[in-house]
């Protein structure tokens, strides 16, 4: 299932008429959104506007009440299943505290069926080399977040859904993250990011979600 390295990505998606609810409460109504290879979409809005809910629905982790999210290749409108094409990186880092940094990365690499180089590459890019053998539970919040985000690189998948990536990162790491997103876009990758902080992404599309959207 895994894409060979250096292969350019070519996946886009279009969501139409999404109605999303959580815990029986309608959060978003009639959301439509389209994005293609190389694009970055920033979701903005006040707390409770439904940014996370929308990301989870796009990633297939939340079933919409109605509406569809269809994935397709550019120039070929045949829809396909998102399985194997998306990575969701939520506010939880999915890091096992009892495992070391390397063990966490290696586990993801096996799960996403990517080569072991990805583990090494992701560790280097996110500046985690000095912490490779440290238990993840002993990392600071910011380092833990970097480890959580490193999963994006390990996974080698075209479509990223990222929730508040920079909330606990220092300025330098936030800049590194923005560069990583830019490199992903150069390869034809697509990123949808919910963020309060300004991310220096060239030509990123911003979508404002409002609290009234569900009304």
């Amino acid at each position: 299932m895994s894409a060979p390295e250096h292969q350019s990505f070519n996946t886009g998606f279009s969501a139409s008429g999404l109605v999303l609810a959580r815990g029986g409460r309608r959060i978003l109504a009639n959301v439509s959104l389209e994005a293609g290879p190389g694009e970055a979409v920033l979701l903005r809005g006040p707390n409770g506007a439904g940014k996370t809910t929308l990301l989870r629905a796009l990633a297939g982790l939340l079933r919409p009440e109605s509406g569809v999210v269809a994935f397709h290749r550019k120039g070929d409108e045949t829809d396909f299943d998102r399985a194997g094409h998306t990575v969701f990186c939520g506010t939880l880092n999915a890091v096992k505290a009892a495992l070391t940094v390397d063990e966490n990365l290696a586990f993801w690499s096996a799960l996403y069926e990517t080569s072991d180089d990805r583990r090494v590459e992701a560790r280097r890019v996110f500046g985690l080399d000095p912490y490779a053998d440290r238990a993840a539970g002993a990392l600071s919040t910011g380092l833990m977040r970097r480890l959580g985000l490193a999963r994006l690189l390990v996974a080698m998948r075209p479509v990223w859904f990222v929730d508040e990536p920079t909330a606990s990162l220092d300025a330098a790491s936030a800049k590194v993250f923005a560069e990583i997103v830019e490199r992903h876009r150069e390869k034809g990758g697509l990123a949808v990011i919910a963020a309060h902080d300004a991310l220096p992404l060239a030509g990123a599309r911003t979508i404002e979600l409002t609290l009234e959207a569900a009304a």
């Binding site: 939520g90 939880l92 993801w108």
Partner: peptide, 11 residues
């Protein structure tokens, strides 16, 4: 609780 379940589902 740590978000790993989402990873298991998507992989």
């Amino acid at each position: 609780e740590d978000g790993s379940l989402d990873v298991l589902v998507e992989t």
